[in-house]
Design a protein around this nucleic acid. Structure first.
Length: 463
RNA sequence: GGUCCCAUCGUCUAGUGGUUAGGACACUGGGUUCUCAUCCCAGCAACAGGGGUUCGACUCCCCUUGGGAUCACCA
């Protein structure tokens, strides 16, 4: 092997959005390129016109950009390279390694059915016609394979083997003149100088066919790396859109941090052998290796993602988090100033798992609770201290320390417990089932609001 | 059915012949002046089965079982 500059690619077909499985493939390819100082290329495999979704390409690009997996250049589109595939196809025709396929869909179905009935694999090469017409536009072109045993090295799976049954004649160019994946990706990888083909497991059974084609084309084979599936949360099936796998951009909408997703995805099927659980992107670039990628599928676990995301949120400087939190505030928060919102954010930072939780955690800072909300948090019979609390807090400067001292004093003088007194105050001032720590909450909420809410609660209870 | 891949706690995993099989998520219990969360402590919990090889197997080999993929003019 030569010392060609490392180049990897991510080659999705534009049929919809990207889910975590696809993104993980992109991430690994990106990491391999990055750590070698190489290039990461985006190639749009749009050779199936019937499944093509117009907005898909932009959506894919947006997804990669959000996660910081920036391709080296703009995307390469296979649909714009038809002439190239045609030329290479012609080479195969000229060397006798490809032939026009005149069989009808009915022929094929019949052959397939009979193979199935005989419990044998369907191999087109067993029905290869002895004579075929010259290849002309509008005719599908089929590869003429030379079946044999193969052994090859996979960067992830190790030494792999397959028998001649795995090699067959397959379609290179379809009747609409578009190439198949099986053909186009081989040509493109070669022409684009791709050094590592990193792709998911579904292509593994086809590798012997590809190997046969590399030989027929007399081109050097890139390194092959097969990634195991990301499995759905339940069952052993690979994660799929059909089973509700989320669009990666939905995680953006819910306020997950890109660096958290990256760390989570990287450790889904890879580890560096240490007990480290969280990785910064720079560390991943340094430490990642295909050889340490797991060979078995990894199940996607929401809970772990939440934990990782919460971890990143807690570690983040408040000012930075504040910028990201912008779209996630409760509606009424617009009317509050930045200082206030930052204080509030500081209070809930440690309990956010993702930013969309901000709303439910902070609404009572921006809007008075309703009667029902207050009463829902207060048991009348036990709520008897409110007027005393009001008296004391009226004297307070509402600093954290002063509030703390006063409420602690009340604990003494009223001869009660935090579980009683603090719950009462919390319920009356927030009307919420959960809230941040009491003294800070009161301090941030401010004297006017706190006193007004306490008085209102007191009135509601008739005390 | 043929071909191919895979197999350690519920989940993600460490482990490369000798370990009380480690960590993390989740879960359970406890602590941190109320709730929720953080943090800390503790607990629960795994080598699919059977044969070999070996003084010794989670580690190596074989078989079985289980799971998955693939056999398209889809990628």
């Amino acid at each position: 092997m030569t010392d060609k500059p490392v180049r990897t690619r991510f080659a999705p077909s534009p049929t919809g959005y990207l889910h975590v499985g696809g993104i993980r493939t992109a991430l690994f390819a990106w990491l391999v390129a990055k750590q070698a100082g190489g290039q990461f290329i985006l190639r749009i495999e749009d050779t199936d016109r019937s499944r093509h979704v117009e907005e898909s390409e932009q959506h894919i690009i947006d997804s990669l950009n959000w996660l910081g997996l920036k391709p080296h250049k703009g995307p390469v589109r296979q649909s714009e390279r038809l002439e190239i595939y045609k030329e290479w196809a012609q080479k195969l025709v000229d060397s006798g390694r490809a032939y026009a396929d005149v069989s009808s869909p009915e022929d094929l179905n019949r052959l397939r059915d009979s193979a199935k009935g005989a419990h044998k694999p369907f191999l087109f090469r067993e029905h290869r016609p002895s004579e075929t017409p010259p290849w002309e536009p509008g005719m599908p072109l089929r590869f003429k394979s030379e079946p044999k045993n193969y052994s090859w090295q996979d960067e992830v799976m190790g030494e792999l083997h397959a028998g001649p049954e795995s090699v067959d004649d397959f379609i290179l160019i379809k009747s609409d003149s578009f190439p198949t994946y099986n053909f186009a990706h081989i040509i493109d990888d070669h022409l684009m100088g791709i050094t590592h083909v990193i792709r998911s497991q579904e292509f593994l059974p086809s590798v012997p066919k590809f190997l046969n084609l590399y030989e027929a084309l007399e081109i050097e084979r890139p390194k092959l790396a097969t990634l195991p599936y990301v499995l759905g949360p339940d069952g052993n099936k690979k994660l799929s859109k059909r089973d509700g796998a989320k669009d990666i951009l939905d995680y953006k909408k819910e306020g997950y941090l890109p660096e958290a997703l990256i760390s989570f995805l990287a450790t889904l099927g890879w580890n560096d052998g240490t007990e480290q659980e969280i990785y910064a992107i720079d560390e991943l670039i340094k430490k990642f290796s295909l050889a340490r990628v797991q060979r078995s599928g990894a199940r996607f676990d929401d809970k772990r993602l939440e934990w990782v995301d919460g971890h990143f949120i807690r570690e983040m400087p408040l000012d930075e988090l504040y910028k990201l939190a912008e779209p996630f505030w409760p509606d009424q928060a617009k009317e509050s100033d930045e200082r206030f919102r930052k204080d509030v954010l500081g209070l809930v930072q440690e309990r956010l798992k993702f930013l969309a939780e901000l709303r439910d955690l902070t609404w009572f800072f921006f809007r008075d609770p309703t009667d029902e909300e207050i009463l829902g948090q207060l048991a009348k019979a036990e709520s008897v201290h409110l007027s005393t609390v009001i008296e004391s807090l009226q004297q307070s400067d509402f600093s954290y320390d002063d509030i703390k001292d006063r409420l602690n004093d009340l604990l003494q003088s009223l001869n009660t417990k935090p579980a009683v007194l603090f719950s009462e105050i919390r319920g009356a001032t927030t009307g919420a089932k959960i809230s941040p720590e009491l003294f800070s909450s009161l301090s941030v909420l401010g004297k006017d609001k706190v006193l007004a809410r306490l008085q209102r609660a007191s009135k509601l209870l008739g005390t």
